[in-house]
Structures are given as C-alpha cells and as structure tokens.
Simulated assay, not measured.
Amino acid sequence: MRESAAERHARLLDLVRERGTVRVAELAGLLGVSPVTARRDAEALASRGLLDRVHGQVSWPRAAPGAGPAGPGAAEGLVLGLLAPSATYYFAEVIRGAHEAAARAGARLVLRVSDYRPEEDRARVEGLLAAGAEGVLVAPGWRGPEDRLAYGDWLAGLPVPAVLLERRAEPGSPLDGLDRVASDHAHGVLLALRHLLGLGHATPLLVARGDSPTALAVRAGYAEALAVLGLERPRPVIDSVPAEADPEGFERAVRALHDAVRSGLASAALVHNDVDAIEIVQRLAPLGVRVPQDLALIAYDDEVAALADTPLTAVAPPKREVGRHATELLVERLTGGADEEAAGRHVSLLPRLRVRASCGAS
C-alpha cells in the first residue's frame, strides 16, 4: 500500500526528534523518497512550527519560553504518546501546542498519525505504548458518529492515563468517563451568526461538510445557535464536499449558495472549512456573486482564511491551546498533581472570531 503524506510526515518527525538535527539533503535517502518530496515535506512541517529549518537543515523545535502550570522539569523523563488523524492543517497546531507543553515539563512526546483510518487507531496507540508511552493523548480518526460507536470504547480500557483531544464521546458510554479537552464549536458558530446579524443580515446560511467530527459539531452548533437567537432555518444546510474529490458535488454546493443569494433568500453565510470557503468565493465571482458586496462570508477553522484574495473573517478554534491544556492535564495525572480519585475533567475551550474583509470590514 502506498504511503500517505501524513504517514511520511510522521516518519520525518520521528527521524528529526531522534537525531535532533538532520540536513535536508540527507532526508531523501533516510526516508526513501525523492529530494523534491523530502524538501517539500520539510518546508511544510517547518511552516507549521513542527520543525525549525535553518541553513539547509531541520531541527526539533525548541520549547517556547516560559513554563506552563506543570512547571519546568515536572515530568522529567516521562514519555507521552500522541495519536492524531493528521499532522497538517487543523491538527498541526494541536500537535505544536502539545509538543511545547511536553517540552516545558521535561517530557518526551512521541507522535503517531492515523490518516483518518479509525480502524487502525487501536494498533497505533498500542505502538505508542510499546514505544514507552506512559500516558496518551488521543484524537481518534473518526469521520462520523458510526466511527465513534464502532471504534471508541476500547480507549476506556487502556492501561495508562488517556486524554481525548478535540473529540466528544457518546454520552453515557465508557469513553465518556475519560478526561478530554476540546473546542466548543457551538460557541464558535454562535459568534459567527451574531456577528453577521449585527451587520444587518437576515438569517445566515450554513455551508458545511459532513465528513469529520468538527464538521458535524458545526452543523449541530448551527441548529443550537438558531434556537438561541430565536431564528428559523432559512433552508437546509448546504452540503459541501472537497472540490478535488467530488467536483460535481462541490459545484452543486456553489450553485445552491449562488441561487440563494440571487433570489434574495440570503446575504450571509458561514462556510466550513477555510479551503472550501476560498474555493467557493473563487467560483462565485464569475457567476456574478461578489464577497463581501453581495455575500458576507465567514469561514470556519482559520487555517488559511487570511490568505484569500479577500481575506476571510473566520472562526478560530483554540487548536494550540487544546494541545497544551490536554498535555498539562496528562502530565498532572502522571506526576501526582491530581489525586487518582480526583474527578475526571471535560474541558471546553472557546473559539474566537477574527474579523477581516469578507464581511465588509476595512
């Protein structure tokens, strides 16, 4: 089976972590890939802050200045495992926050990437334990509720402390008793809708994918926000899909939004995620719908929203803080900072709204 980019990135990170510093010119041979691929991978990981790149070499990043609540050296010698569904886009910042918190505490962080294959999560966590992990941070590769039900309960039976990252368990399930740290996406959606309503727009539409826990949380948050604000749903959520994977499905989403604007049904929309939002704006322009003149638009994720031709206002989940808080909680469990009988914690961190030009801001 061909190795995915996520798996290759995880190997590269493991390699640099073990060696400390590696010349970019040596990476191709060590990874068994072309020089162009090795250089591109190194640049991508460095741009996310997961590696330091200077003078033709990459190094494991130094810890950020200042000590967190765990205190410097509190976990000296501890090995922490982290399972993430991806090492890029959204989860790059989660990983970075976890790495910084582990380094501040004197712990070593070992990363595995599932590439959104939940059926492999258990084996990858077992690999982390075999590598010496004394506690684990786990963001399962779930895509929908069926994955959570089919590939979740085993986590509650791990022999080491575990913290669930950016995921919510089925209420009442064994997994619901684990510590977890996650973004409050319902709050983020409410921020977006309140902002658009405050600008004088009628009920905003939602354009969203349905292929990840974040996308599903945004959809649920939209329904909750409408209820809180006393609004009626103007029409069903417009289903979005990745343009490269399903061009026809993506075009249907663009056309549905175009028709809603042209008919006067809507003048504002929230779009999950940044990439879809940027591509939708680009596709709407030749159809005669301009952002922000005809449509005020807010993206959800704030990974690349600021880089659009018209910088996009975006909801920014606290991704880095999620990684940091989860790691500090795990270190606290492992170092005796929390009593074994202490209540578990479900920590929700609030997203922020970053206002840019796509809603008419200067």
Rank of each mutant, 00 (worst) to 15 (best):
L329K: 03
G336S: 06
I280T: 06
T203A: 15
R48T: 08
A182L: 15
D184C: 05
L27I: 09
H187R: 14
G144F: 02
P159V: 07
A156P: 00
R356K: 10
A70I: 02
R283V: 01
P65D: 13
D301L: 09
L82G: 01
P318R: 13
P161Q: 00
R168C: 06
P161H: 00
G127I: 09
A162I: 02
V125C: 03
H9L: 07
D121T: 09
V304W: 12
A123D: 14
L199R: 15
Y151L: 08
V261W: 06
G20Y: 11
Y151A: 02
V58P: 00
G73S: 10
A243Q: 15
V125Q: 01
A162M: 05
L149C: 04
P35I: 11
P65H: 12
A326C: 02
V163F: 04
P247I: 10
A74G: 05
L78N: 00
A208D: 08
D41H: 13
D115Q: 08
W60T: 03
T313P: 01
T327F: 11
R352Q: 14
L129D: 00
A338N: 08
A87D: 10
V331D: 00
A123L: 13
W60C: 04
T310G: 07
V136D: 01
R219L: 04
T214H: 12
S358M: 12
T313C: 08
G288W: 11
L51K: 01
E7L: 14
F250L: 06
G32L: 11
V237M: 01
S183A: 15
G337I: 05
T335K: 09
L83N: 01
G77Y: 07
R19D: 12
D52S: 13
